[in-house]
Lab assay of single mutants.
Amino acid sequence: DYEVGESVTVMDGPFATLPATISEVNAEQQKLKVLVSIFGRETPVELTFGQVSKI
């Protein structure tokens, strides 16, 4: 299970290999909103559970 505030690594898509912090969890739809730090700015990205891995 994923929790808000948890650190994960993006495994898929254009942000693969980047660390991210979970900002929202939708367990019903198996989706997460995460904040990816790009060029010093936090960018919100919506991903599925399968696109991230716990650190």
Rank of each mutant, 00 (worst) to 15 (best):
E46R: 05
P19N: 12
D1M: 15
T21V: 14
V45G: 03
V45S: 04
N26E: 05
L32K: 00
T21P: 02
E46V: 09
L47G: 00
I38P: 04
N26V: 07
T43R: 08
P44L: 15
V45T: 07
Y2K: 01
F15D: 02
V8H: 00
G40V: 03
V34Q: 00
V8Y: 02
T43V: 15
A20R: 00
E3G: 08
G13E: 02
L32Q: 00
S53L: 10
V8K: 00
Y2D: 00
F39D: 15
F39Y: 11
K33C: 10
Q51R: 03
A27N: 13
V25A: 03
G13L: 02
Q30P: 02
V52Y: 02
E6M: 13
A27S: 11
I55C: 08
S37Y: 13
D12K: 08
V10K: 00
E42S: 05
A20H: 01
L35N: 08
R41W: 11
K33N: 07
F49D: 01
E28P: 09
V45M: 08
I55R: 09
M11A: 07
T21D: 03
Y2G: 02
E42P: 13
G50W: 14
V36N: 00
P19S: 13
F49R: 02
L47K: 02
R41A: 11
A16W: 05
L35Y: 09
P14A: 08
E28C: 09
P44Y: 15
G13K: 01
G13F: 03
E42V: 12
P44D: 09
K33A: 06
V34L: 08
T21K: 11
E46I: 09
S37R: 12
F39G: 15
N26C: 11
P19Y: 13
F49Y: 12
I38S: 07
T43S: 07
Q30D: 05
V52S: 01
E24F: 10
V10C: 04
V4T: 05
T43M: 10
M11Q: 07
F39C: 14
G5V: 01
E24S: 09
P44R: 11
P44I: 15
T48M: 11
T17P: 07
N26P: 01
S37L: 15
V25R: 02
V52P: 01
S7A: 13
K33S: 08
K31V: 13
L18F: 14
F49T: 04
N26Q: 09
P14R: 07
V10A: 02
V52D: 01
M11I: 15
Q30K: 12
V10P: 03
K31T: 15
A16Y: 06
I22D: 00
E46N: 07
V34F: 01
G5C: 06
E28A: 13
P19D: 08
Q29D: 11
R41M: 14
E6R: 04
V34A: 06
T17Q: 12
A27M: 13
R41E: 12
F49N: 03
S37V: 15
E42W: 14
N26S: 08
E6A: 08
Q29L: 12
E42G: 05
L18T: 04
P19M: 15
Y2E: 00
S37H: 13
I55H: 11
S37M: 14
A27E: 11
P19V: 15
T48V: 07
I55L: 12
K31A: 07
Q29P: 03
Q30A: 08
A27L: 13
T48W: 10
A16Q: 08
Q30N: 09
Q29G: 09
F15T: 02
L35I: 14
D1S: 14
F15H: 06
E3S: 12
T17L: 10
N26L: 11
S7V: 15
K54I: 06
G5Y: 04
G5M: 04
P14F: 07
P19G: 09
E3K: 13
I38K: 06
P19K: 14
L18H: 10
T48Q: 09
V25G: 01
E3W: 11
